[in-house]
């Protein structure tokens, strides 16, 4: 399966790379203003910049994540002022160390450009919370905590989001969490299968 598949483009633009939408800025990491600026400003924390399908991903070190996102938000030439999404990926099956990636999708409303910032970290490492920069990160981080057990440092209210508050079976989107959970699921009311008998309704 050829990666650079070119079939099926619209009739008026033969041969163009069809995912080239231009929504992510220049495709070469060396030309991308955000990459240049971050590399200049945070030489120690910048890891690398990857481009796939024209989508620009900046990998940074975990401790500097918040400073870098703040820089991307407030720098007048970048202004990534909108947090599209914040999530995590469990990289357990893809690499040994570190285990998780936290993925921050940024968008610049004035410049109409997207950017992805990633930081890798191990289980238990605190990740700087984005809630101080974007209020919208509140629930997204709570969800990431709920699903992956990532502790966000500086989050005002890190509780379970989607699972019940008393869920004690861990964090289900981790790759080592079995699809059906750790326990045998018993349908309520069928714990002790017994022959059906007619029972009279009793008032509790």
């Amino acid at each position: 399966m050829a990666e650079e598949q070119q079939t099926g483009g619209p009739a008026d633009s033969p041969g163009r790379r069809i995912w080239a939408t231009g929504h992510w800025g220049p495709t070469e990491p060396e030309e991308h203003p955000a990459v240049i600026a971050v590399r200049e400003r945070f030489p120690d924390s910048f890891v690398d910049a990857v481009n796939f399908r024209d989508e620009m991903t900046i990998r940074v070190d975990r401790p500097a994540l918040r400073e870098i996102v703040l820089f991307l938000r407030d720098e007048s030439s970048l202004r990534y002022n909108f947090l599209s999404d914040l999530t995590a990926v469990d990289m357990l099956r893809l690499r040994d160390n570190p285990r998780f990636d936290v993925v921050v999708q940024l968008y610049s409303i004035p410049r109409r450009q997207r950017l992805r910032v990633k930081a890798a970290f191990n289980d238990g490492d605190p990740v700087p919370s984005m809630t101080l920069l974007y209020e919208g990160a509140n629930w997204l981080e709570r969800e990431a905590y709920d699903m992956f057990g990532i502790v966000f440092e500086g989050h005002p209210d890190l509780r379970r989001m989607l699972l019940p508050d008393d869920w004690d079976e861990g964090h289900p989107l981790r790759k080592d969490y079995p699809l059906r959970g750790y326990r045998e699921y018993v349908q309520p009311g069928f714990e002790n299968p017994a022959p059906r008998v007619r029972s009279r309704f009793r008032r509790p």
Binding site: R53, E55, S84, D85, T87, R93, L94, V103, Q105, R116
Partner: peptide, 30 residues
């Protein structure tokens, strides 16, 4: 690879973040 595709849903920006590890099953669908 990984892609983030946003569309304008009736309620706002609907984004799908799909990570592929080269197998027929997505590594992560967000």
């Amino acid at each position: 690879g990984e892609v983030y595709q946003a569309i304008e849903h009736s309620k706002g920006e609907l984004g799908y973040y799909v990570v592929s590890d080269g197998t027929p099953i997505p590594y992560r669908v967000r």
